[in-house]
Write a protein that binds this DNA or RNA. Sequence first.
DNA 1: ACGCCACCATACACAAGTGTATGTTGATAT
DNA 2: ATATCAACATACACTTGTGTATGGTGGCGT
Lengths: 191, 191
Amino acid sequence: MSTASPRRTAASPSLDTAAWIDAAFEMLAEGGIDAVRVDPLAKRLGVTRGSFYWHFKDREALHQAMLKEWRKRASYQIGSRIESRTSAPDERLKQTLALPNSTPRSKRAAAIELAIRLWAQRDANAAKAVQHIDRVRLKYYAQLFGEMGLAQPEARKRAFMFYATLLARAYVITDADTDVSADLAALLVDP
Amino acid sequence: MSTASPRRTAASPSLDTAAWIDAAFEMLAEGGIDAVRVDPLAKRLGVTRGSFYWHFKDREALHQAMLKEWRKRASYQIGSRIESRTSAPDERLKQTLALPNSTPRSKRAAAIELAIRLWAQRDANAAKAVQHIDRVRLKYYAQLFGEMGLAQPEARKRAFMFYATLLARAYVITDADTDVSADLAALLVDP
DNA sequence: ACGCCACCATACACAAGTGTATGTTGATAT
DNA sequence: ATATCAACATACACTTGTGTATGGTGGCGT
């Protein structure tokens, strides 16, 4: 039957560790950090706990690895946008607002971030990560508004509202009737 | 010593059920809905599980009771503001923005709501409750903006941004440097 | 004075999860 | 071909949590 399980397929430096983390993010999105448990994870991956404790010291190690991974992903997302200076700042802001927020992919990402923010209420490391990412994003948006001609304090305020709108679009449950997020670009970007 | 434990102090129609729910909200704020467990709750209240299963059928019953209670509280909060038509709409909006968001009390409330929003990702009842509260709040804010002279669609957008800013103020971790929420009133309410 | 009943404790069976120690396998290098 | 080691399985002891069944106790009405 096919190639069975690729236990040692030449090119696997530590690819399975990533698989654990990916599955862990799945559980995080569904039930919060407390739902990221070793046994259910192993069952989902079709292996036993024996595997887990080879890749990670304990459950806490996985949690910290997840935090590090989330930090990396969120940072990269902003970083790549800073790199690609293709369009004008207002266009880029509009593009950000136009990003899909109803796809399974984006909904999952929102749930993950929501879970991490809740986690940050008790875990200092999680709080640090969230604070860091918030700072990076706000700085990026403020810079774009600055490039549009706004002064520093004004750009900061506008960036905060912009960011707030993005988050609310993901966290607030609206029916199609109340969903006005599509029209917000004009109000925020074009004043 | 004093009155010991008020097991049957005349006026207690079901006051202990409320105590269970209050403690449950504490745990909800700290660890999400999965952390709302019977044993830890009983230990926190200084009783055994025997008490719990007298007040509630099972763990799920407590969760639903919490949802009902949160719905009631959040609805009442808005309802009482609608009642007290003391000041002008713009003043009331500014007052809402001026509400404290760094006190332990408000931080706890934010954590509770964050936990419920995460919970709403998998539980249909929680999703219904969140959707209901979001709708009530947005409607209230839109009405205020409407009273300020804005047309319906414009008032709706402004209400969404206003609500988004409120939420972000609670969920986004900012350092004092980036905290511009205090100056947002002018930008949102006074255009 | 006494029984009723709200309220809680105790005890039990069971399930699920954690961590550790150790066995097993299959690919790779030499 | 065989030793080696990454990657996983198995078995065990332990902890925590759930639900139930049943026993105890102190106010309260009559």
